[in-house]
């Protein structure tokens, strides 16, 4: 099973029925699989905070949701994470491509990379960092944890996790 298939299978296992995405080169494969999964409503959003609003609504409507996004969007989502997702205590798995780490070819990506974990830590978002392909095994437990504690949870995924850029 490819890691993309495993990720989608875990989302389905945990009854995630709505996924919003903003693309990253690394996330192209998983976005394609999410779109093809019949039990998931895939709703591309134009900005990540907008996507988090949709996820909050879906949760209140009785459906579990998730967001797939790039780490460069952390800055624009801080207010939403704090005053919507956390303030109203809502679960939100965030599958995040961690650009600007080892193997990164684009210098500009390193600039947000150095702030990513600090920003997540500052707002008390539980953060998991998947380095290698085999780390995908942790996703099942991370999703269970997210829906147990009703918090936004960050899953940072390196280029090496996706097998390069």
């Amino acid at each position: 099973m490819s890691i993309e298939d495993k990720i989608v299978a875990d989302l389905v296992k945990h009854r995630v029925e709505l996924v919003t995405t903003v693309p990253c080169k690394q996330l192209a494969g998983v976005i394609e699989k999410v779109d093809a999964e019949p039990s998931i409503y895939h709703i591309p959003s134009n900005k990540e905070d907008e996507g988090m609003g949709i996820c909050a609504g879906a949760f209140m409507g009785g459906k579990r949701s998730a967001i797939v996004m790039q780490n460069t969007a952390i800055g624009v989502t801080i207010n939403t994470l704090v005053t919507l997702t956390q303030f109203y205590r809502m679960p939100l798995p965030m599958l995040i491509s961690y650009r600007g780490e080892l193997g990164e070819p684009v210098a500009c990506q390193a600039e947000m990379a150095v702030h990513t974990k600090a920003l997540l830590a500052q707002i008390n978002v539980p953060t998991y960092h998947l380095h290698k392909e085999a780390d995908v095994e942790e996703l099942d437990a991370i999703l269970a944890y997210t829906f147990m504690c009703n918090k936004p949870v960050a899953i940072l995924t390196d280029a090496t996790f996706w097998n390069g850029y």
């Binding site: 409503y41 907008e50 909050a56 409507g61 009785g62 939403t80 919507l84």
Partner: peptide, 22 residues
């Protein structure tokens, strides 16, 4: 009534999410 206490701009996104889910 769901009152937004923060996140200016997201009323339409939250409402759409609720509508799509039920």
């Amino acid at each position: 009534n769901f009152y937004m206490l923060g996140t200016m701009g997201l009323s339409s996104s939250i409402g759409l999410g609720v509508a799509l889910a039920q």
